[in-house]
Design a binder for these strands. Structure first.
Lengths: 97, 97
DNA sequence: GGAATTTGGTTTATAAAATAAACCAGTTTA
DNA sequence: TAAACTGGTTTATTTTATAAACCAAATTCC
């Protein structure tokens, strides 16, 4: 009789959801690319990437390309699971009976 | 190049979305019913209903039934529009290309 | 060659939200 | 008649999101 499943609060955030949405369909993406695609400010993105990383929804690696620092993000299996069940749960809200 | 539409922050909240989801498929519903269906606390629900009402996404009426106060909520046309475009926009996040 | 700008971020401060706790007026129950 | 319950609202606290400030290194401009 309970009809609304809880939505993972980590994913129920516009920017974090956008990041996960990008990462789910791509092997990996770097900070600048994600920033452009999402339209986020660098500061906000940095914080949200940290949170996704802390939850191990994504894997973050930093290296240099020539002289420039590059931050690369990749979704983890755990992240894929979380995203998929978030989408699943959200359907109850979007297509009410 | 930007691919994510902004999500109406008023609707991008678990409880408010649940309330709207309930109201969209029903003519009207009262406070107690919504509280039970959503599992929210009364305080939280009261606050969130106020916000939806302030945005004129819902219409709130209070009356007495016998000796008991009853708060009735009904979605407005504006609320229906908002809900529908929220759902629309959200699809970009859920079904990434 | 030195000041100003850009790149690729991080850290910190502020604003906004969600949630919980306390409260209230009236009613019913023991 | 005191205690508990109903149907909420208000206020306080915690959590989040966002913005602003900052940093180091590299590049560009005069």
């Amino acid at each position: 009789m309970k009809q609304f499943s809880d939505l993972d609060p980590l994913l129920h955030s516009q920017l974090r959801l956008a990041v996960m949405s990008l990462l789910i369909s791509v092997q990996e993406a770097n900070f600048v690319y994600i920033k452009e695609k999402t339209g986020a400010t660098a500061g906000n993105l940095s914080v949200q990437i940290d949170k996704l990383s802390a939850a191990e929804y994504i894997d973050v690696k930093k290296h240099f390309e020539g002289k420039k620092p590059v931050t690369t993000c990749k979704i983890t299996p755990r992240g894929i699971d979380a995203f998929e069940s978030y989408v699943q749960n959200l359907q109850q809200y979007l297509n009410p009976k």
